[in-house]
Design a protein around this nucleic acid. Structure first.
Length: 355
DNA sequence: GAAACGTGGAG
DNA sequence: TCTCCAAGTTT
Protein backbone atom coordinates (compact mmCIF):
# COMPACT_ATOMS: atom_id res chain seq x y z
CA UNK A 1 0.00 0.00 0.00
CA UNK A 2 1.50 3.34 -1.03
CA UNK A 3 2.35 5.62 1.85
CA UNK A 4 2.37 8.92 0.01
CA UNK A 5 -0.78 10.88 -0.59
CA UNK A 6 -2.44 10.17 -3.86
CA UNK A 7 -3.35 13.64 -5.07
CA UNK A 8 -5.55 12.25 -7.79
CA UNK A 9 -7.61 10.19 -5.39
CA UNK A 10 -8.07 13.22 -3.16
CA UNK A 11 -9.36 15.36 -5.99
CA UNK A 12 -11.75 12.65 -7.14
CA UNK A 13 -13.19 12.11 -3.68
CA UNK A 14 -13.66 15.82 -3.03
CA UNK A 15 -15.34 16.27 -6.38
CA UNK A 16 -17.64 13.25 -6.04
CA UNK A 17 -18.72 14.35 -2.55
CA UNK A 18 -19.58 17.76 -3.97
CA UNK A 19 -21.41 16.13 -6.88
CA UNK A 20 -23.48 13.99 -4.54
CA UNK A 21 -24.90 17.17 -3.04
CA UNK A 22 -25.00 19.49 -6.04
CA UNK A 23 -25.53 17.41 -9.18
CA UNK A 24 -27.86 19.14 -11.62
CA UNK A 25 -31.09 17.38 -12.44
CA UNK A 26 -31.13 16.83 -16.20
CA UNK A 27 -33.54 14.86 -18.41
CA UNK A 28 -30.88 12.31 -19.39
CA UNK A 29 -29.68 11.68 -15.86
CA UNK A 30 -31.18 9.17 -13.47
CA UNK A 31 -32.39 10.63 -10.16
CA UNK A 32 -29.67 10.98 -7.48
CA UNK A 33 -29.20 7.76 -5.51
CA UNK A 34 -31.28 5.84 -8.03
CA UNK A 35 -30.39 2.21 -8.49
CA UNK A 36 -31.54 2.42 -12.09
CA UNK A 37 -28.81 2.44 -14.67
CA UNK A 38 -29.11 5.13 -17.31
CA UNK A 39 -30.58 4.17 -20.69
CA UNK A 40 -27.66 4.04 -23.18
CA UNK A 41 -29.93 5.42 -25.92
CA UNK A 42 -30.70 8.51 -23.89
CA UNK A 43 -27.07 8.93 -22.85
CA UNK A 44 -25.93 8.65 -26.46
CA UNK A 45 -28.61 11.03 -27.75
CA UNK A 46 -27.78 13.61 -25.09
CA UNK A 47 -24.06 13.38 -25.78
CA UNK A 48 -24.49 13.91 -29.51
CA UNK A 49 -26.79 16.88 -28.93
CA UNK A 50 -24.44 18.37 -26.36
CA UNK A 51 -21.47 18.45 -28.71
CA UNK A 52 -20.50 22.14 -28.85
CA UNK A 53 -23.98 22.99 -27.65
CA UNK A 54 -25.25 24.35 -24.35
CA UNK A 55 -27.43 22.36 -21.97
CA UNK A 56 -30.15 25.00 -22.15
CA UNK A 57 -30.32 24.72 -25.93
CA UNK A 58 -30.38 20.92 -25.85
CA UNK A 59 -33.11 20.23 -23.28
CA UNK A 60 -36.17 21.07 -25.41
CA UNK A 61 -34.75 19.12 -28.37
CA UNK A 62 -33.93 16.16 -26.16
CA UNK A 63 -37.44 16.14 -24.74
CA UNK A 64 -39.03 16.29 -28.20
CA UNK A 65 -36.76 13.58 -29.63
CA UNK A 66 -37.29 11.13 -26.78
CA UNK A 67 -41.05 11.71 -26.77
CA UNK A 68 -41.25 11.07 -30.50
CA UNK A 69 -38.58 8.37 -30.79
CA UNK A 70 -38.32 6.64 -27.39
CA UNK A 71 -35.88 3.94 -28.50
CA UNK A 72 -32.97 3.59 -30.87
CA UNK A 73 -35.08 1.25 -33.00
CA UNK A 74 -37.79 3.90 -33.29
CA UNK A 75 -35.22 6.46 -34.38
CA UNK A 76 -33.70 4.03 -36.85
CA UNK A 77 -37.12 3.52 -38.43
CA UNK A 78 -37.92 7.24 -38.59
CA UNK A 79 -38.27 9.19 -41.80
CA UNK A 80 -34.97 10.97 -42.42
CA UNK A 81 -36.54 14.29 -43.39
CA UNK A 82 -38.55 14.29 -40.16
CA UNK A 83 -35.43 13.77 -38.07
CA UNK A 84 -33.58 16.52 -39.92
CA UNK A 85 -36.53 18.87 -39.46
CA UNK A 86 -36.65 18.03 -35.75
CA UNK A 87 -32.96 18.93 -35.51
CA UNK A 88 -33.44 22.27 -37.32
CA UNK A 89 -32.10 25.17 -35.25
CA UNK A 90 -29.70 23.09 -33.19
CA UNK A 91 -26.81 23.48 -35.62
CA UNK A 92 -23.94 21.26 -36.77
CA UNK A 93 -26.25 19.28 -39.01
CA UNK A 94 -23.71 16.56 -39.74
CA UNK A 95 -24.62 15.41 -36.24
CA UNK A 96 -28.19 14.75 -37.37
CA UNK A 97 -27.07 12.85 -40.45
CA UNK A 98 -24.70 10.76 -38.34
CA UNK A 99 -27.39 10.31 -35.70
CA UNK A 100 -29.61 8.52 -38.18
CA UNK A 101 -26.72 6.44 -39.52
CA UNK A 102 -25.70 5.50 -36.00
CA UNK A 103 -29.23 4.54 -34.91
CA UNK A 104 -29.50 2.30 -37.96
CA UNK A 105 -26.10 0.72 -37.35
CA UNK A 106 -26.94 -0.03 -33.72
CA UNK A 107 -30.33 -1.43 -34.69
CA UNK A 108 -29.18 -3.50 -37.64
CA UNK A 109 -25.70 -4.59 -36.58
CA UNK A 110 -26.05 -4.78 -32.80
CA UNK A 111 -29.69 -5.79 -32.37
CA UNK A 112 -30.58 -2.44 -30.86
CA UNK A 113 -27.97 -2.56 -28.09
CA UNK A 114 -25.16 -0.05 -28.02
CA UNK A 115 -21.61 -1.44 -27.81
CA UNK A 116 -20.45 -1.19 -24.19
CA UNK A 117 -16.77 -0.47 -24.76
CA UNK A 118 -15.00 2.69 -25.83
CA UNK A 119 -13.56 0.92 -28.84
CA UNK A 120 -16.92 -0.38 -29.99
CA UNK A 121 -18.60 2.96 -29.47
CA UNK A 122 -15.83 4.85 -31.20
CA UNK A 123 -16.54 2.99 -34.43
CA UNK A 124 -20.08 4.40 -34.64
CA UNK A 125 -20.83 7.38 -36.91
CA UNK A 126 -20.61 10.69 -35.07
CA UNK A 127 -18.97 9.14 -32.02
CA UNK A 128 -15.46 10.45 -31.44
CA UNK A 129 -12.99 10.04 -28.60
CA UNK A 130 -14.89 12.21 -26.16
CA UNK A 131 -18.34 10.76 -26.82
CA UNK A 132 -17.14 7.15 -26.72
CA UNK A 133 -15.49 7.74 -23.36
CA UNK A 134 -18.52 9.57 -21.99
CA UNK A 135 -21.00 6.86 -23.01
CA UNK A 136 -18.73 4.06 -21.78
CA UNK A 137 -18.40 5.76 -18.40
CA UNK A 138 -21.92 7.10 -17.90
CA UNK A 139 -24.01 4.35 -19.48
CA UNK A 140 -21.79 1.33 -18.86
CA UNK A 141 -19.83 2.22 -15.72
CA UNK A 142 -16.50 1.76 -17.47
CA UNK A 143 -13.46 3.61 -16.30
CA UNK A 144 -12.78 6.01 -19.17
CA UNK A 145 -10.91 9.28 -19.39
CA UNK A 146 -13.52 11.80 -20.45
CA UNK A 147 -12.07 15.06 -21.77
CA UNK A 148 -14.28 17.82 -23.07
CA UNK A 149 -13.84 21.61 -22.99
CA UNK A 150 -14.93 21.72 -19.32
CA UNK A 151 -12.40 19.11 -18.31
CA UNK A 152 -9.73 20.92 -20.32
CA UNK A 153 -10.41 24.09 -18.38
CA UNK A 154 -10.64 22.45 -14.95
CA UNK A 155 -7.50 20.39 -15.48
CA UNK A 156 -5.56 23.30 -17.00
CA UNK A 157 -6.27 25.22 -13.81
CA UNK A 158 -5.71 22.38 -11.37
CA UNK A 159 -2.21 21.85 -12.76
CA UNK A 160 -1.56 25.42 -13.98
CA UNK A 161 -0.72 24.20 -17.46
CA UNK A 162 1.05 26.99 -19.33
CA UNK A 163 1.16 25.34 -22.73
CA UNK A 164 -1.55 26.85 -24.94
CA UNK A 165 -4.40 24.81 -26.37
CA UNK A 166 -4.53 22.82 -28.56
CA UNK A 167 -0.87 21.83 -28.08
CA UNK A 168 -1.58 21.08 -24.40
CA UNK A 169 -4.12 18.34 -25.18
CA UNK A 170 -1.78 15.40 -24.54
CA UNK A 171 -0.70 16.92 -21.21
CA UNK A 172 -4.27 17.58 -20.20
CA UNK A 173 -5.30 14.08 -21.10
CA UNK A 174 -2.52 12.57 -19.00
CA UNK A 175 -3.49 14.77 -16.06
CA UNK A 176 -7.17 13.86 -16.44
CA UNK A 177 -6.18 10.20 -16.52
CA UNK A 178 -4.27 10.66 -13.28
CA UNK A 179 -7.28 12.02 -11.39
CA UNK A 180 -9.95 9.73 -12.88
CA UNK A 181 -11.02 7.20 -10.23
CA UNK A 182 -11.35 3.47 -10.83
CA UNK A 183 -14.99 3.48 -9.79
CA UNK A 184 -17.74 5.99 -10.48
CA UNK A 185 -15.94 7.24 -13.59
CA UNK A 186 -19.31 8.26 -15.07
CA UNK A 187 -20.24 10.36 -12.04
CA UNK A 188 -16.72 11.76 -12.01
CA UNK A 189 -16.98 12.84 -15.64
CA UNK A 190 -20.34 14.50 -15.08
CA UNK A 191 -19.06 16.10 -11.90
CA UNK A 192 -16.13 17.62 -13.80
CA UNK A 193 -18.50 18.97 -16.44
CA UNK A 194 -20.91 20.36 -13.84
CA UNK A 195 -17.99 22.03 -12.12
CA UNK A 196 -16.78 23.51 -15.38
CA UNK A 197 -20.19 24.93 -16.20
CA UNK A 198 -21.10 26.27 -12.76
CA UNK A 199 -18.00 27.30 -10.76
CA UNK A 200 -14.90 26.73 -12.85
CA UNK A 201 -16.29 28.87 -15.68
CA UNK A 202 -14.17 30.67 -18.32
CA UNK A 203 -14.53 34.14 -16.84
CA UNK A 204 -14.84 35.12 -13.19
CA UNK A 205 -14.56 31.58 -11.79
CA UNK A 206 -16.03 31.07 -8.30
CA UNK A 207 -12.92 29.66 -6.64
CA UNK A 208 -14.16 30.38 -3.11
CA UNK A 209 -17.00 27.90 -3.61
CA UNK A 210 -14.90 25.28 -5.39
CA UNK A 211 -14.45 21.88 -3.75
CA UNK A 212 -11.04 21.56 -5.46
CA UNK A 213 -9.53 24.91 -4.55
CA UNK A 214 -7.11 23.44 -1.99
CA UNK A 215 -5.64 21.26 -4.76
CA UNK A 216 -5.70 23.90 -7.48
CA UNK A 217 -2.38 25.31 -8.65
CA UNK A 218 -4.01 28.14 -10.60
CA UNK A 219 -5.97 29.25 -7.54
CA UNK A 220 -2.78 29.13 -5.50
CA UNK A 221 -1.25 31.48 -8.07
CA UNK A 222 -4.31 33.69 -7.76
CA UNK A 223 -4.95 33.63 -11.49
CA UNK A 224 -7.36 30.86 -12.29
CA UNK A 225 -8.99 32.94 -15.00
CA UNK A 226 -5.81 33.01 -17.11
CA UNK A 227 -6.17 29.28 -17.80
CA UNK A 228 -6.51 27.57 -20.16
CA UNK A 229 -4.04 29.50 -22.30
CA UNK A 230 -5.29 29.54 -25.88
CA UNK A 231 -3.74 30.19 -29.26
CA UNK A 232 -5.07 33.39 -30.85
CA UNK A 233 -7.95 32.86 -33.25
CA UNK A 234 -8.19 33.91 -36.83
CA UNK A 235 -10.42 36.58 -38.24
CA UNK A 236 -13.64 35.59 -39.96
CA UNK A 237 -13.84 36.22 -43.69
CA UNK A 238 -16.94 37.85 -45.13
CA UNK A 239 -18.94 36.03 -47.78
CA UNK A 240 -21.80 37.17 -49.99
CA UNK A 241 -24.63 35.38 -51.70
CA UNK A 242 -28.08 35.56 -53.21
CA UNK A 243 -31.10 33.66 -51.97
CA UNK A 244 -34.28 33.28 -53.98
CA UNK A 245 -37.75 33.42 -52.47
CA UNK A 246 -40.07 31.99 -55.09
CA UNK A 247 -43.67 32.40 -53.99
CA UNK A 248 -46.71 30.91 -55.65
CA UNK A 249 -49.93 32.95 -55.82
CA UNK A 250 -51.71 30.49 -53.51
CA UNK A 251 -49.27 31.10 -50.65
CA UNK A 252 -46.55 28.49 -51.10
CA UNK A 253 -42.80 28.99 -51.21
CA UNK A 254 -40.31 26.81 -53.05
CA UNK A 255 -37.91 24.87 -50.81
CA UNK A 256 -35.27 22.30 -51.63
CA UNK A 257 -33.30 19.72 -49.71
CA UNK A 258 -29.64 20.74 -49.52
CA UNK A 259 -27.06 18.22 -50.60
CA UNK A 260 -25.07 16.42 -47.90
CA UNK A 261 -21.48 17.52 -47.52
CA UNK A 262 -22.13 21.22 -47.96
CA UNK A 263 -23.07 23.85 -45.43
CA UNK A 264 -26.40 22.97 -43.81
CA UNK A 265 -26.22 19.70 -45.73
CA UNK A 266 -29.27 17.48 -45.55
CA UNK A 267 -31.46 20.32 -44.38
CA UNK A 268 -34.36 22.05 -46.07
CA UNK A 269 -33.36 25.37 -47.60
CA UNK A 270 -34.16 28.09 -50.08
CA UNK A 271 -32.42 28.08 -53.48
CA UNK A 272 -29.23 30.13 -53.31
CA UNK A 273 -26.34 31.28 -55.50
CA UNK A 274 -23.59 29.78 -53.39
CA UNK A 275 -21.57 31.95 -51.02
CA UNK A 276 -18.15 33.40 -51.65
CA UNK A 277 -16.03 36.55 -51.53
CA UNK A 278 -18.11 37.92 -54.39
CA UNK A 279 -21.63 36.85 -55.27
CA UNK A 280 -21.49 33.75 -57.40
CA UNK A 281 -23.60 33.24 -60.46
CA UNK A 282 -25.96 30.56 -59.29
CA UNK A 283 -28.99 29.58 -61.29
CA UNK A 284 -32.23 31.10 -60.00
CA UNK A 285 -35.27 28.77 -59.92
CA UNK A 286 -37.05 31.01 -62.44
CA UNK A 287 -35.91 33.45 -65.10
CA UNK A 288 -36.29 37.20 -64.69
CA UNK A 289 -38.59 39.44 -62.73
CA UNK A 290 -36.81 39.17 -59.38
CA UNK A 291 -37.29 41.96 -56.87
CA UNK A 292 -34.55 42.58 -54.32
CA UNK A 293 -35.54 42.95 -50.68
CA UNK A 294 -34.44 46.26 -49.20
CA UNK A 295 -32.49 44.77 -46.33
CA UNK A 296 -30.04 41.89 -46.73
CA UNK A 297 -29.94 39.10 -44.16
CA UNK A 298 -26.84 38.91 -41.99
CA UNK A 299 -25.71 35.69 -40.36
CA UNK A 300 -22.57 34.58 -38.57
CA UNK A 301 -21.26 31.03 -38.83
CA UNK A 302 -18.32 29.49 -37.03
CA UNK A 303 -15.77 30.37 -39.68
CA UNK A 304 -17.29 33.14 -41.79
CA UNK A 305 -19.78 35.97 -41.81
CA UNK A 306 -22.48 35.94 -44.46
CA UNK A 307 -24.55 38.66 -46.09
CA UNK A 308 -27.41 37.26 -48.13
CA UNK A 309 -29.28 39.43 -50.61
CA UNK A 310 -32.87 38.24 -50.83
CA UNK A 311 -34.64 38.24 -54.19
CA UNK A 312 -38.32 37.44 -54.46
CA UNK A 313 -40.71 36.68 -57.25
CA UNK A 314 -44.38 35.71 -57.45
CA UNK A 315 -45.58 33.11 -59.91
CA UNK A 316 -48.99 31.69 -60.84
CA UNK A 317 -50.39 28.77 -58.91
CA UNK A 318 -50.07 26.45 -61.88
CA UNK A 319 -46.30 27.04 -62.17
CA UNK A 320 -44.40 23.81 -62.67
CA UNK A 321 -41.83 22.76 -60.05
CA UNK A 322 -38.47 24.25 -61.05
CA UNK A 323 -36.67 21.04 -60.07
CA UNK A 324 -36.42 18.63 -57.15
CA UNK A 325 -38.05 20.20 -54.11
CA UNK A 326 -41.50 21.17 -52.94
CA UNK A 327 -43.98 23.99 -52.57
CA UNK A 328 -44.36 24.64 -48.86
CA UNK A 329 -47.43 26.44 -47.40
CA UNK A 330 -46.51 29.82 -45.93
CA UNK A 331 -48.90 29.44 -43.01
CA UNK A 332 -46.87 26.42 -41.88
CA UNK A 333 -43.42 27.79 -42.65
CA UNK A 334 -42.38 27.18 -39.03
CA UNK A 335 -42.69 23.44 -39.63
CA UNK A 336 -40.57 23.35 -42.77
CA UNK A 337 -37.46 22.44 -40.79
CA UNK A 338 -35.47 25.41 -42.04
CA UNK A 339 -32.12 25.98 -40.32
CA UNK A 340 -31.80 29.36 -38.65
CA UNK A 341 -30.20 31.12 -41.63
CA UNK A 342 -33.21 30.42 -43.87
CA UNK A 343 -35.68 30.95 -41.04
CA UNK A 344 -34.19 34.45 -40.82
CA UNK A 345 -34.75 34.95 -44.56
CA UNK A 346 -38.36 33.82 -44.21
CA UNK A 347 -38.86 36.21 -41.32
CA UNK A 348 -37.36 39.07 -43.33
CA UNK A 349 -39.63 38.38 -46.31
CA UNK A 350 -42.74 38.13 -44.14
CA UNK A 351 -41.84 41.35 -42.39
CA UNK A 352 -41.30 43.14 -45.69
CA UNK A 353 -44.78 42.08 -46.77
CA UNK A 354 -45.75 43.57 -50.14
CA UNK A 355 -42.63 45.51 -50.78
C1' DG B 1 -2.45 19.55 -37.71
C1' DA B 2 -5.70 22.58 -39.57
C1' DA B 3 -10.02 23.70 -41.43
C1' DA B 4 -14.95 22.94 -41.87
C1' DC B 5 -18.99 22.77 -39.49
C1' DG B 6 -24.33 26.39 -36.41
C1' DT B 7 -26.39 28.64 -33.07
C1' DG B 8 -27.75 31.37 -29.11
C1' DG B 9 -26.65 33.05 -24.50
C1' DA B 10 -23.63 35.63 -21.44
C1' DG B 11 -20.96 39.47 -20.08
C1' DT C 1 -22.47 45.94 -30.46
C1' DC C 2 -19.10 42.68 -29.90
C1' DT C 3 -16.42 38.90 -28.34
C1' DC C 4 -16.27 34.56 -26.33
C1' DC C 5 -17.55 30.12 -26.24
C1' DA C 6 -20.39 25.37 -25.58
C1' DA C 7 -20.72 17.72 -23.06
C1' DG C 8 -16.50 17.63 -30.70
C1' DT C 9 -16.24 14.97 -35.12
C1' DT C 10 -14.75 14.48 -39.65
C1' DT C 11 -11.79 15.19 -43.47
Amino acid sequence: MPVEHNIGEEVAQALLAHYDRHARSLPWRTPPGSRNLPDPYRVWLSEIMLQQTTVAAVIPYFDRFTARWPTVQALAAADEAEVMAAWAGLGYYARARNLIACARAVTEQYGGRFPDTEEGLRALPGVGAYTAAAIAAIAFQRRAVVVDANVERVVSRLFAIETPLPASRPLIRAAADAITPETRAGDFAQAMMDLGSSLCVPRNPQCLLCPLRSSCAAHREGRAETYPVKAPKKEKPHRLGLVWWLERADGHVWIERREDKRMLGGMAGLPDSGWDKAIERGVPPAAGGWITLNRPVEHVFTHFRLTLTVQRKRVPTDTAPPGPGQWWPLDRIGEAGLPTLFAKVARAVMKAGND
